[in-house]
Amino acid sequence: MADGAAPTAAGPAARLSRDGLPLLLFALLAAAPFAGFGDGASLTLMARAMILALAATGLWLLVGGAGLISLGHAATLGCGAYAVAILDAHGITEGAIVFPVAILGAGLFAFLTGAVSLRTSGVHFIMITLAFGQMAFFTAASLAAYGGDDGYTLYGRTEFLGGRLLESRLVFHFVCLGALALVWALCRAVLASRFGRVLRATRENPLRVQAVGFSPYPYRLAAYTLAGMTGGLAGALLANATEFVSPAILAWQRSGDLLFAVILGGLGRLHGAMLGAFAFLLLEETLSHVTAHWRLLFGPLLVLAVIFLPGGLVGGLVGGRRKPGGPA
């Protein structure tokens, strides 16, 4: 069965083989700070990787789950990040307020833009998500009170019950890991549910789904909103990781990066998004050490990956290839 969340009445052994890779990844990330990767640079890189993976997992829900190609996912990260910045500017740094606001704010943005975008399909959907992404970008750039084009520097990370927990790199590492594992488990459960099955059916053939008596629209809108909420969470974490928020987070190129991470990992399995995000950052990190002009190598690698690795890393590793979904 090629699909990541395909529900099968399997025993623990089959379950382990299906979820083995992501669980191994989580275990490795949990052990990494104590196995020689506890220095600041490694923790910073891993935090970035986990946040990117978190955002990519949410995007996978759309691209791999529903067959909806969004080129505006970075906007939801921007909503989350700007929620942190705007609340910070008004003196609110309590995590119990900041994180829900970031998640719900991004969810609301996704719900409103999704309600319009999902009326279209195919190329038009790509373009309209791109347009909404650009609108969010220009809105952020015009927020003069919160830095405008130059961005906004946070004075400190989000607190919890007044405690400056996240200031510790190690705690932040585990917060990111926990969030990633939670979102992965949530998306996996969503895809395996009845809702997820209808969603995946709308990817394969919306017409038949309608014939069976479902309307694809509310399912797609719910998935779009959910993906937006995960984007909001990723954005709030990203703001805390860099302690800086700028419109660059919302640039359409960032949406392209996210989409690339998802495809690099592969649409065959949900954890492809995580693999892709890690591979993406590793590639970027390695190449940028080789040359300052690392994009000269990165661009062609992207092209080659698309042409020669249609199943992504998951397809290559597990052989769980499915034909790339047609235009959504």
Binding site: V63, I126, I263, L296, L301, L302, V303, P310, P324
Partner: peptide, 25 residues
Amino acid sequence: RHLYGRDHLSQVLATFGVILFLNEA
């Protein structure tokens, strides 16, 4: 030429790679 028969997603990504390359070049 290698992308005509492929889905829009592949086309978006591969041409995005071309952008990265040429801007940097």
